[in-house]
């Protein structure tokens, strides 16, 4: 079992943030062709982990099933970055939140594709309306920023994200924004 795309790891890590009761999740993708690097980070303001749990979650065999807060997701993400000449770091503070960063060497044979990050953000945003998401995506000098707090302000408190028309708008907005990063008009 493995993730074929980096964006699936991101989706998986977001599930941890949700389980940690985060009310804010920031997803950041930075691609620099000059530095030959792809950096991904997911940070949240969830319940965080103490030192003991933090050490444990990077080890696939030590997760206790009863808590079921984390499983194979973190070790697989770490392995995928390290296999592609990259790095992985996890910082967490109990009561403050968790930040996971993974770096990949773009030109590495084993660097997986970023994949459909729009789908990852879209499904996470629509299904977790009570959580604010900030999604930043940079490719060299271009940047796309998507902040659900801005969407919430525009829609007001009464209109849910999962209304068909709103869903369609968000999906399209993300697709267009990301398309622009990769040289589209």
């Amino acid at each position: 079992m493995m993730m074929k795309e980096i964006s699936l790891h991101v989706l998986d890590i977001i599930q941890n943030s949700i389980a940690a009761q985060a009310s804010f999740i920031e997803i950041c993708i930075e691609i620099s062709h000059e530095c030959d690097k792809l950096l991904v980070s997911v940070s949240d303001n969830g319940c965080g982990m103490d030192e003991q749990l933090r050490k444990r979650v990077e080890n696939p065999y030590a997760t206790s099933r009863t808590t079921r807060k984390v499983g194979l997701g973190i070790p697989m993400f770490k392995a995928s970055a390290e296999a592609a000449g990259g790095m992985f770091s996890l910082t967490s503070k109990l009561g403050e939140g968790t930040c996971i960063q993974a770096g990949y060497k773009l030109s590495h044979w084993d660097c997986p594709p970023l994949g459909d990050i729009a789908q990852t953000v879209y499904t996470s945003v629509i299904c977790n309306e009570n959580i604010n998401f900030l999604y930043l995506h940079r490719v060299d000098a271009r940047e796309f920023r998507f902040d659900t707090r801005e969407i919430r302000r525009t829609l007001g408190e009464d209109v849910p994200f999962n209304l068909p028309e709103v869903m369609a708008w968000i999906k399209e907005y993300l697709a267009e924004g990301i398309h622009t990063l990769y040289g589209g008009a």
Binding site: M1, Q15, G71, Q119, P164
Partner: peptide
Amino acid sequence: GMATCGIAAGARPVLTAFMDEVAKRNLS
């Protein structure tokens, strides 16, 4: 189901397909 097991098995496109279908048919 969107845990690691679900995601690795292909849950994301399934979730998106449901969302698309619901939006397309305007099932509020």
